[in-house]
Amino acid sequence: MRADETNYLQITEVDYEGDQFLTLGLAQFDSEAECVAAYDGVAEVDEDPNAPREYKIDRFSGLARVDEKFIASATVVELLRCDLIHLHDQAAAALDHEVSDYLRTADAE
């Protein structure tokens, strides 16, 4: 499958206190129709400007984000079948690893 044919959903934690966006999970679909149906099946919540953290789901078609909405933390737990602390810790560790690899590669050049 080519990248421009990819349809997927991405769940992101928006950590306002830590000033981070952490990808908690992805779901890839064979068709745009399946992806849209899954996206439409997730309930939206209002953005809370006072929240230290929020969660959102983005719908991608190819390399472009085409839709996004905020979702409840309970919805994240239900969709990813894992508690938020574990998801946050995994995503933060993956980001740290990615940054370390990038810096190590940049230093070697």
Rank of each mutant, 00 (worst) to 15 (best):
V99G: 02
N7C: 14
A106T: 09
A3I: 10
E68P: 00
A3N: 14
E13Y: 07
A93Y: 02
K56R: 11
R65A: 06
D30V: 03
F60A: 13
I85A: 08
E47T: 13
A108V: 05
E32P: 00
A108L: 11
E68T: 13
L95M: 09
D89C: 03
R53S: 05
A106Q: 12
Y8G: 08
C82S: 10
E78S: 01
E44T: 13
E13F: 07
E32R: 13
A43Y: 10
I11L: 08
A33C: 09
E34T: 10
L87W: 04
V42Q: 05
S100E: 11
T12C: 05
G18F: 03
A72F: 04
L95V: 00
E78W: 00
G62H: 10
L79T: 08
A38D: 09
C82Q: 04
N7R: 15
D67L: 07
D19W: 07
E68Y: 11
S61I: 05
Q28E: 14
Q28V: 13
M1L: 08
A93L: 00
V36C: 05
S73A: 12
L103A: 10
E44S: 15
D67I: 07
D19E: 12
D46V: 04
Q20E: 10
E34D: 15
I71P: 05
E34F: 07
A94W: 02
I57Y: 04
A108W: 10
Y8C: 12
H88R: 12
A37K: 15
E68W: 14
D48I: 01
T23H: 04
E5N: 01
D107W: 02
H88K: 08
M1E: 12
V14G: 00
A27E: 11
A72Y: 03
D96K: 07
G41A: 15
Y16P: 07
V77F: 09
C35L: 06
T75I: 01
A93S: 02
H86V: 04
D107T: 07
L9N: 09
A43L: 12
L22T: 14
E5C: 00
G41I: 03
L26Y: 11
I71G: 04
S73P: 10
D96C: 00
V42D: 02
E13G: 06
T12I: 10
D58W: 04
A27G: 00
R2E: 09
M1H: 12
G62E: 09
G41H: 08
I85S: 01
R53V: 01
T75F: 05
S100Y: 03
E44D: 11
E17L: 15
Y39V: 08
E47M: 13
L79Q: 14
Y55E: 02
L63G: 11
T105K: 10
L87V: 04
R104S: 03
A94H: 05
L22Q: 15
M1P: 13
A106E: 13
V14H: 07
L80C: 09
L9E: 08
Y39Q: 12
V76M: 03
Y16W: 15
V66I: 08
G41F: 05
A43S: 15
A43N: 13
L79C: 03
D15P: 10
E109W: 09
A108M: 14
N50Q: 11
C35H: 05
E68V: 08
T6I: 10
V76W: 04
Y8W: 14
H88D: 01
R65L: 06
V77D: 01
G18I: 03
V45H: 01
L103M: 12
A94L: 01
T6C: 09
